[in-house]
Every structure is written in C-alpha cells, then in structure tokens.
C-alpha cells in the first residue's frame, strides 16, 4: 500500500489508481509493409526490469487522467511523477537499490535480514 502523488490532484492512496503498464511505448502508425516482428515488438515486448521503470498510471477514482511515474520495482520507491508527453526527469536511484543490496535478479532473500561482518551500513 503506497501513496501516489497524482500530478493533477496531489497525494492519494494507491487504491484510487489503476496501473497502465510500461510508459513511452508509442503505437506504430499503420503501414502496409509493417513486419510481424515490428508489430510484435510493440504488442508484446516489455522491459520488466528489477529497478527503475517508467510506467503509466491512471487516477481512476479521481481525475481519471493518465500520467507517468518512475518507480523502483524492487522497492516500490516512487522516484518521480510527470505528465503524459513529458520526458522522464533524471533521477538518482537510491542506493543500495534494494534493502539488501541484493543481486539485480532474483530475490536474494538470504541476504536481506542481517548485516554480515565487514558489510557497510
């Protein structure tokens, strides 16, 4: 459960919003010679990173406007919120990227809980 700052309405609870998938994926204009691969790239391919992702949200139970968000998918840290059509702002991801400073893939759950000798922090 987190709080999202709608660029039009301000801070609101997560439950008021609907997720809209990855942002900045433009729908290609119709062309007779568009290849299956080209269309599939638009239709199916998503980055799905563990880390910072630009994604779309809609304030469904509010102004019903779509906007963009930079979110760290590993921690749910919201790094920036900006309007449709705007370029994503430069953000400095918080370090460590996750509470445990774990590997970029996988949960690395073992390392999460306890600071090991010689480890910073």
């Amino acid at each position: 459960m987190f709080v999202i700052t709608c660029p039009y309405c301000g801070e609101r609870d997560l439950t008021e919003f609907a997720y809209g998938g990855e942002a900045h994926i433009a729908r290609p204009h119709w062309r007779e010679d568009m290849s299956d691969a080209e269309w599939a790239d638009f239709l199916f391919m998503r980055a799905n990173p563990k880390g910072v992702l630009a994604e779309r949200w809609m304030h469904a139970a509010g102004c019903r406007r779509f906007f963009n968000m930079l979110r760290n998918t590993a921690t749910d840290d919201i790094l920036a919120v900006y309007r449709i059509g705007e370029t994503p702002p430069k953000v400095e991801a918080r370090l460590p990227a996750t509470p445990s400073g774990e590997a970029p893939l996988g949960s690395g759950n073992d390392a999460v809980k306890v600071i090991q000798p010689g480890e910073g922090g």
Binding site: P99, K113, V114, I115, G121
Partner: peptide, 16 residues
C-alpha cells in the same frame, strides 16, 4: 530493515 548482531547482548538489534 537489516539487523545487526550485538555480541555484548548476544542478540540482534536494528542495523540499517
């Protein structure tokens, strides 16, 4: 949060 081992009390306490 990450726990830190404290040998003096032989227990974990809040770390990071």
């Amino acid at each position: 949060g990450k726990l830190r081992w404290d040998a003096d009390i032989a227990a974990f306490k809040p770390g990071l």
